[in-house]
């Protein structure tokens, strides 16, 4: 399929743009930590860009944990049909 026939949202050029936009917004959001008021409750949550790195790392951890658990728990989806 020609690139131009594709829906504009799925063209590689749009996807590249969306990636850049996402990275840009993330950088700006994280840098906003320098100017906004902080209300840390515990300690770790007062570190620079806490919500950014915490969000990223915990998500990576959850995906890896799920993947690992999947090795033990995944079965063909016809498992119970027999």
């Amino acid at each position: 399929m020609n690139t131009q026939d594709k829906h504009w949202l799925v063209r590689p050029s749009t996807i590249r743009l969306l990636w850049r936009l996402l990275i840009g917004i993330l950088v700006i959001l994280t840098l906003m930590d320098l100017v906004i008021e902080h209300h840390p409750h515990f300690g770790l949550d007062g570190t620079f860009g806490f919500f950014s790195w915490y969000g990223f790392l915990t998500c990576v951890a959850m995906v890896i944990f799920a993947k690992g658990l999947g090795f033990f728990l995944k079965r063909k989806d016809t498992y119970y049909d027999g």
Partner: peptide
């Protein structure tokens, strides 16, 4: 609002 956006969009990046 900023904290929530940081958390969620970073989760999006991780995805």
């Amino acid at each position: 609002v900023v904290n929530m956006l940081q958390l969620l969009l970073m989760a999006g990046l991780a995805f």
